[in-house]
Simulated assay, not measured.
Amino acid sequence: MNALTMVIIGVVLVAALIAAVWWGSRRTSRRAPPPTPAEQPHYPAGTDRAPGEIQEDPESNELPLRDTRLTPHNLKDGDTEH
Rank of each mutant, 00 (worst) to 15 (best):
L4Y: 05
P72N: 11
L13Q: 08
Q55I: 15
H82G: 12
D79Q: 11
T47I: 04
V12S: 06
V14I: 15
A16S: 11
W23I: 10
W22V: 15
T5P: 00
I8D: 06
G10I: 01
R31N: 07
A38W: 02
N61S: 10
D77W: 04
A20I: 03
P37N: 03
N2I: 10
H82T: 13
K76V: 11
E56D: 12
T71E: 14
I9F: 13
I54D: 05
V14F: 13
H82S: 13
P34K: 03
T68M: 09
R30F: 06
V11N: 05
S60P: 00
V11D: 05
T5G: 08
E53H: 07
T80G: 09
S25Q: 12
M1P: 01
Q55V: 15
Q55S: 12
R30P: 00
A3S: 13
A20D: 05
Q40Y: 06
R49T: 10
A50M: 10
P58L: 09
N74V: 04
P35I: 01
R49Y: 04
G46E: 01
T28K: 14
P37E: 04
A19L: 13
P44C: 04
S25Y: 14
V7W: 08
I9C: 10
Y43W: 11
H42D: 06
G52E: 05
P64A: 08
R49F: 03
E62R: 09
L17T: 05
I54V: 15
K76G: 08
D57S: 10
N2M: 08
T80Y: 13
T68S: 14
I8Y: 09
H73V: 09
G52C: 06
V14W: 07
P33N: 06
R30L: 13
V21N: 04
D57E: 14
P44Y: 01
G10Y: 02
E59W: 03
W23D: 07
T36E: 06
L63M: 14
Q40S: 08
H73M: 09
V12A: 14
P58C: 05
D67G: 10
E39S: 07
T71L: 15
L70P: 01
E39V: 01
H42S: 11
E39F: 01
R30K: 15
E53W: 06
P44N: 02
P51V: 06
N61G: 09
A15Y: 01
D67H: 09
T36L: 10
H42P: 00
Q40P: 00
P44V: 00
R66N: 08
W23L: 12
Q55L: 14
L17Y: 03
T47P: 00
D79S: 14
R31P: 00
S60W: 00
P34S: 05
A15Q: 05
D77G: 09
R69C: 06
E39C: 03
A20P: 00
E62G: 04
L13A: 15
D57N: 10
D67A: 14
G78I: 07
V11L: 15
I54W: 07
A32F: 03
S29C: 05
G10V: 02
I8T: 12
P51E: 09
A32L: 09
E59N: 10
N61H: 10
A16D: 05
